[in-house]
Design a protein around this nucleic acid. Sequence first.
DNA 1: GTCAGTGCAAACCCTTTGCAGAAAG
DNA 2: CTTTCTGCAAAGGGTTTGCACTGAC
Lengths: 146, 146
Amino acid sequence: MDNHIEPATTHNPDVAGMLRSHGILPTQQRLMIARVLFSKHQHYSADQVMTSVNEGRDRVSKATVYNTLGLFARNGLVREVIVDPTRVFYDPNTDNHHHFYNVDTGELMDIDSSALQISELPELPEGTVAAGVDVIIRVRGESPAS
Amino acid sequence: MDNHIEPATTHNPDVAGMLRSHGILPTQQRLMIARVLFSKHQHYSADQVMTSVNEGRDRVSKATVYNTLGLFARNGLVREVIVDPTRVFYDPNTDNHHHFYNVDTGELMDIDSSALQISELPELPEGTVAAGVDVIIRVRGESPAS
DNA sequence: GTCAGTGCAAACCCTTTGCAGAAAG
DNA sequence: CTTTCTGCAAAGGGTTTGCACTGAC
């Protein structure tokens, strides 16, 4: 009988601690979702997270995937990337950086913040404080078959 | 009897010609929508366009509003601004410029391109060409009651 | 034992679509 | 007259919600 639950933090450094340090109670489902998000440097739509998570035997419901991603985003564990009106992407990389978005393929790629400099920000509207800066370079064209 | 149709181009310089020059046949509904878009320097969601257009006596259906805004965007008459997963904004200003987005109020404001400089673009992914650059500065805070 | 988290299905809401009638040239 | 556009209502699709059950501590 090997249908036991694998130790949550074996192949990935302390995912549970990562959640706790962001004020998130590490439940089984949240750990599964976090492991998907942080196992690769990739961007995921909620649907892709759901698919990846549910490749294993233990399943997580759609509601929980959405709720969890929203929770992670609110608590700064992941970053929401809004580039496509039809779905939100979640980026496990919360460092300052920017994005390429291929409007033909739907592919989203990181741009290191050092590769693109922005001048100082203009004066913000009265009564507001900065909450983040998003730079999206939209590109077109199929990536080579490779 | 004064329920005649006002000359389409009276208070706004040649809206019809503007449509034609973008390859768009100027129908009555398209003119009404274009007049709303270009009468003020504002950003509109589809719903706001619909409301504004239908303040007058002549009504335009929801389907036509959506279809028309999509058409205008495809033909470069307006710019789609993707900042909020729940709705698309349409910007009558197609010049190079950027945006503030107030995540508390949903307000969208222009940033003149001269107010924010970007370094040269990083190398694009292989096989792709640039299709546009969006810079969004997200801010937080109610604007003063004023 | 208590409170927070989860799952299911239904509800939501913006947007798109199919198709018959109306308008443009 | 022919083709394109418009309107209505229904369908679509990602996301959220209500509520009973489960799990965490």
